[in-house]
Design a protein around this nucleic acid. Structure first.
Length: 199
DNA sequence: CATAGGATCGCCT
DNA sequence: GGCGATCCTATGT
């Protein structure tokens, strides 16, 4: 067991953590089903000064209040009325940094992922896209606020956590680019806060 | 209370 | 690569 500890998430460099998350295992136990994938794509959202962030300008609402939790908390919200998007809160309580997980390579629990996706087989782009990530892993926006550093004994309680199983991609395997779908963010839309790992 | 719009996806061409 | 689906959230009256 290589569960990522609270200290991993409490650090202040959200962009660096977004890069470090590439290769980590994202694991869920939801409705009793275990599913896991390797994180292949992330985006950093750098808090109150980042125009692309939901917390820009200290915005604090029933949706965004979870972003002000301590690092190691799940922030999940609904996008376009259809997709739950899974984010990892970082930094200390009160500082609303978050990292959107945009892609995974499925590893464990393929049958339940296929069932959730409604598809007959795993294709190359099976885990590409933030909406798909949450759907495959059974993550719903009602799971926002889940603590990512504990795994309850009761398998009926939804659990989401990350593990380091030794995949540490080097610079030659990582592509850095601007974030997707944040045109409204002005100059901040150009920041190189998106990280993708070549397989 | 009413309304505009969104950190997307999948199907169509 | 263009577009419709679909509904919560935020904001304003």
């Amino acid at each position: 067991m290589h569960l990522l500890p609270r200290s991993f998430y409490l650090r202040s460099d959200v962009v660096g953590i977004a890069r470090e998350l590439l290769g980590k295992y994202l694991i869920t136990r939801i409705d009793g089903d275990i599913a896991a994938g390797v994180i292949t794509e992330t985006e950093a959202y750098a808090g109150v000064s980042d125009r692309a962030s939901h917390a820009f300008g200290n915005r604090y609402t029933s949706r965004t209040q979870v972003m002000y939790s301590p690092g190691g908390t799940a922030y999940v919200y609904l996008c376009y009325g259809i997709h739950s998007l899974f984010n990892i809160v970082t930094n200390q309580e009160g500082i609303p940094h978050a990292i959107l997980v945009r892609g995974i390579r499925p590893v464990e629990g393929i049958p339940v992922m296929l069932k959730r996706s409604g598809k007959p087989k795993v294709t190359k782009d099976f885990g590409d896209g933030p909406g798909k990530v949450a759907r495959l892993l059974g993550i719903h926006y009602s799971h926002s606020g889940t603590d990512l550093t504990v795994i309850p004994d009761d398998p009926g309680i939804p659990a989401i956590w990350l593990e380091d199983r030794g995949i540490h991609p080097g610079h030659d395997r990582i592509e850095i680019s601007p974030r997707i779908g944040v045109d409204y963010a002005g100059d901040d839309a150009l920041l190189p806060y998106r990280f993708r790992m070549r397989l």
